[in-house]
Design a protein around this nucleic acid. Sequence first.
DNA 1: AAGACGAAAGTGGTTGA
DNA 2: TCAACAACTTTCGTCTT
Length: 320
Amino acid sequence: MTETFINKKYEIFLKVLESGKMNKKKICPHCGGEVRLDPSSKEYTCTKCGYVIDDEYISYGQEGRVFSGDQGKSTLRTGVPLSDIKHDKGMSTTIGMGRDMYNTGDSKKINRLKKWQTRISTALERNIKYALSELRRVSENLNLGRATKEEASRIYRRAAEQGLVRGRSMESVVAGALYAACRIHRFPRTLDEISEAFGLDKKEIGKTYRFICRELKIRILPTFPKDYVYRFSNELGLSPKTTTKALEIIEKAQEKEITSGKGPMGVAAAALYVATLICNEKKTQREVADVAGVTEVTIRNRYKELIEKLDLEKEIQAGE
DNA sequence: AAGACGAAAGTGGTTGA
DNA sequence: TCAACAACTTTCGTCTT
């Protein structure tokens, strides 16, 4: 589609060029020869030495502004970008009631089209539409990237199309899709955060999430402790130095394979806690545990392992 | 008194028969 | 479907600063 589109544009462009409206002659800075648009490569090329002056075929110039309805037709070059967040990807049109439609002659045909249009927007589309508006509303509070939201929308769409929403609350499916999207994008949010944003039960979301992943065959990579470190340290207001230290500790721990099978959030929390001790930026276990969403006990367990296996005792004493 | 530590019992999920 | 299991949580008493 893109190629034919560009070719067509190119034909027009050539015509314009030939008609002399844009015919500014260019001179090759290399040899002084005449520069022409090479039709095969769509580059401005010197006819004498072959020097490519400009390979910028697509215009990046300012978009023509539109002040009244009809004016747009001649100046507009683009449309709204496609978006998965909109239930119809922002592409739908509605056959209007206006007179002009009927004036084209075949009013029966138009009526049939209208009928079909309403038929096409079935219950499924309505459901998706509603779900995505819910998604938009909730993700306001979660501070998510556009890509993540679109991923979540795609997942929900697929889930809805396969009838996975039936028997489950729509919100929980949306929440599950969002949680999955976050993990796919290595931008993990804890289940707690999501369940709070949606006002749903944590277990419910987790259950739906696993169900969706199984049914849609979405392969979710396990999360890594590192993914959480930045967010946690940010919430704790730690210095970059401490953060880096924590990442270092996690790396070493992974080398020694003492993180496998352990909860990534627990590992991240423990690494951060140790890092605060080493860098003299002490936080209590309680504080770290709270932002990480684990208990002090878990931090203690991980922390004990880290110190034993990585010989961090000296570093901590040196830090103090 | 607050924070750290550790033991014991309980919870929810996974795995394998 | 059920029991075994590992990780994690909750609770609570004790120790340290």
